[in-house]
Design a protein around this nucleic acid. Structure first.
Lengths: 249, 249
DNA sequence: CGGATGGTTGATAGCAATCAAGCACAGTGG
DNA sequence: CCACTGTGCTTGATTGCTATCAACCATCCG
């Protein structure tokens, strides 16, 4: 593992405050894996053997049932995923695959559990990470249940803008089909709805988004911290939503 | 606080393994509150001052946005809620109100945070509780995104049957309007869909449900542990799904 | 016996999924 | 350099589901 990556990992909220001895012990049994795009990293239903840390690239978390498929989150560097399954030693609820060539750090979940029992600071970090993950998933559910698809899209654009530092112009980090799946609709519907939002303060050229009238766009979806989230909270299972990370409340 | 309730609380997964000294310290500053039906206990957006434990009665967790409202979970004795907000000291994402006259134990979240830093066993319990809560919320989202409303209803009936010990006859514990909201549909729709399920192996008389042909009902919704959950996992934020509480791990 | 609330039913409108083509762009190979 | 092919994206036509509006019924309670 490269010293640079090691340093970045050490600086994650999850690892920042733990004892050096604990961190070193964790890293000793950890492995780095390089994967091509499209590689399946974990499959839902399998036992959680490793905590995953995305060091480079991006990873989609998705769920399947009866041949249907939905995107639950996209993890970007440096984010962790499937922490919950690891600490409970239970089967994954989601599958994961790389969206591009990626590098992933694997930490054996047995070591993770052993060390969090010995290092109180680490336990505290895990609690914080899990609480954030829970809140992120609760937001996801609220978004789905309380908003129409048009509203979810407008909210997504506003959130992406915020993640881009509040810029009026930014580029979608994620394929539109994945955005659609994440937002709980079909690609066709996303396409149409995006078009209908042009004329509500948004311009689109491919993946480039320009917000021309923020007030009009906000009319399509009133933002709410209790759904759209303060950016400082990591998302789903210690995961980042599509987009750069931010500082928050 | 009654010794009986105290014992039950002490026996919750969250408190079972902690040091007696820690438990006593927590309980010293805790308060019991009696509430009539329909009383608002917490409001989304407010700061988390207390961890709540439902000792008697039942509590609905719901979320609101732009005048819309959705049920996120129903907590029954003895279950806790809003643990995530407490440990992070962040605003509630959900509101809570009693569905019937209830008794609720309030534990100051500052004490909670202080004690979990001192008592590693307690920290471990909190981690387990939060992980379970995360997984429950992830299941909720999967259920919404991967299943049609008819499938969600069939799945709900099958789950309620399982919670009733696998019985073919059971009684809905929750108002249908709440079930509808929890499942992400309107009461009208639930009513119609339930009717259409008669003839798919279900009979309904008021709140009494009889599964006459389990195989046919299963055709309407193939059960999946990764969505419907093993009964051993507590639900959403340490919460039980609408339905009888289970004795659980 | 009202009155309120929850539940059901019916009619209608609107939104979203589906099916089916076409289009645009990127990577590949001739 | 230029087809060529695959993939993602868009567009259109249609179907079907779900919400909405409105009325009615049942039950519980004062």
């Amino acid at each position: 593992m490269h010293p640079q990556d090691l340093a970045e990992t050490r600086n994650l909220p999850l690892f920042r405050t733990m004892l050096s001895a604990s961190f070193d012990a964790l890293m000793q049994s950890a492995m780095t894996q390089r994967c091509p795009a499209g590689q399946e990293l974990i499959r839902q239903g399998a036992r959680a053997e490793y905590l995953h840390v995305v060091v480079e690239g991006s990873v989609e978390l998705y769920a399947e049932w009866q041949g249907r498929r939905t995107t639950m989150a996209v993890v970007q560097p440096v984010g962790t995923f499937i922490l919950a399954a690891c600490v409970k030693d239970l089967p994954y609820l989601m599958s994961a695959r790389t969206l591009e060539p990626s590098r992933v750090l694997l930490i054996p979940s047995s070591d993770l559990r052993a060390i969090f029992r010995r290092d109180p600071e680490f336990a505290v970090s895990i609690v914080g990470e899990l609480a954030a993950a829970f809140r992120s998933m609760a937001r996801h559910a609220k978004n789905l249940k309380l908003r129409t698809s048009r509203e979810r899209i407008a909210g997504y654009l506003l959130k992406q803008s915020a993640l881009a530092g509040g810029a009026d112009r930014f580029v979608l980090q994620i394929e539109k089909r994945l955005v659609a799946s994440y937002l709980g609709m079909t690609p066709e519907n996303l396409s149409r709805a995006l078009k209908s939002l042009e004329g509500s303060g948004v311009e689109l050229h491919g993946h480039a988004v320009t917000i021309t009238d923020r007030a009009r766009l906000a009319e399509a979806c009133e933002a709410d911290v209790l759904i759209d989230g303060p950016d400082s909270e990591p998302l789903s299972d210690g995961v980042s939503l599509p987009g750069p990370a931010l500082s928050e409340d």
